[in-house]
């Protein structure tokens, strides 16, 4: 696909770690992470803009601020590993290698969207990329993710599945039903809690017992857990490698609690009065996942300002192309209303 070909392929990004920078990432890895995260950031900014213009409707949950989580995870995955997540899913799809044009056109509800315009922002899937959605019911994707792992184990392959969910979702009962099953059946599933500190307008501490450490809930089920700086893509990648290795070795599930932050409102209609502007500003200034990589790249002279500007321009072009496609592609044909309800048996 055009977009990805401009990037370093996943394989070479992992490499054999020849010339490590003092950050623990190779030059290629740093640049890969930078590009992947920047693509998500620019894509989401554009989506926010298109929403404001009325091209995107309904709910639209942006991933801005949390980019290091999916990108770090992606860097540790191999082809065939399955991913499933909630409605805050644009970043996960881009990281899975799904076409930005198809994602954006789904946001605008057009024919060329990845669900033919029928799913929308919250519901996109790619069997080819092993991306299983895109789910609107908080917590529902967690047992589904364990089911994907069950299938891998059943078939005896060494693929793992990654089930993402939020700090708010961590209070749903089905999460703990799933922890129990995953543990007793040693399912190769990595539970990634994206703890962005808020569930809509509820700060974790207001809704959650022992909110300082959500991953620790795994202890009751004998599932190993780690709390990870989710704003630092290196920390995410390293933790992901440990978790995935554990799963692939047949040792059962693993929990990674990613401490992260969303800069924007919960969805487009969130007035965000539950936190201070200073809090958001401080995060952006001191912990931005993209700025961190950028600073490392420039400090270690892995690339010049001009090189990065060129990357920025490339990514802007990809996003602009996606947005143009998404605005001009026709709506689905009226006959599509009645297709895809059943599989033809």
């Amino acid at each position: 696909m055009a977009v990805k070909s401009a990037y370093i392929s996943k394989k070479s990004a992992k490499g054999d770690k020849p010339n490590l920078t003092n950050s623990g990432f190779t030059t290629e890895e740093e640049l890969f992470a930078y590009k992947e995260m920047l693509l998500i950031r620019r894509f989401e900014e554009k989506a926010g803009q298109l929403y404001g213009m009325g091209f995107i409707g309904g709910f639209c949950h942006l991933y801005i601020g949390q980019e290091a989580v999916v990108v770090g995870m992606e860097m540790a995955q191999k082809e065939g590993d399955a991913v499933i997540t909630s409605y805050r899913d644009h970043g996960h799809m881009l990281a899975a290698g799904m076409d930005p044009k198809g994602v954006m056109a789904e946001l605008t509800g057009r024919k060329g969207g990845l669900s033919k315009g029928k799913g929308g922002s919250m519901h996109m899937f790619s069997k080819e990329k092993q991306f299983y959605g895109g789910h609107g019911i908080v917590g529902a994707q967690v047992p589904l993710g364990a089911g994907l792992a069950f299938a891998n184990k059943y078939r005896g392959n060494d693929n793992v599945s990654i089930a993402y969910f939020g700090d708010g979702a961590a209070n749903q009962g089905q999460v703990y039903e799933t922890f129990n099953m995953a543990s007793i059946w040693k399912l190769p599933v990595i539970f990634v809690i994206e703890n962005n500190r808020y569930a809509m307008g509820t700060a974790a501490a207001r809704s959650t017992a022992v909110s300082e450490h959500l991953g620790a809930r795994g202890a009751a089920f004998g599932i190993p857990f780690e709390q990870v700086d989710g704003m630092d893509v290196r920390a995410v990648r390293d933790a992901a490698e440990r978790a995935i290795e554990h799963c692939r070795a047949g040792e059962g599930p693993y929990i990674l609690e990613m401490m992260t932050y969303r800069y924007r409102g919960h969805s487009m209609s969130d007035p965000a009065k539950y936190r201070s502007k200073e809090e958001v500003q401080k995060m952006r200034e001191e912990h931005d996942p993209i700025e961190q990589v950028k600073a490392r790249i420039l400090n270690a002279k892995l690339a010049t300002e001009d090189d990065l500007k060129k990357i920025d321009a490339e990514i802007r072009a990809v996003v602009t192309e996606a947005a143009e496609f998404a605005q001009n592609d026709p709506e689905p044909d009226a006959s599509e209303l009645y297709t895809d309800i059943y599989v033809n048996a």
């Binding site: 315009g117 029928k118 799913g119 709506e331 009226a334 599509e336 209303l337």
Partner: peptide, 16 residues
């Protein structure tokens, strides 16, 4: 309502 899950696309939702 039509006998289909609610589609997202504006034109299809209107039809549904």
């Amino acid at each position: 309502g039509k006998d289909v899950p609610m589609p997202y696309a504006a034109n299809l939702e209107k039809l549904a």
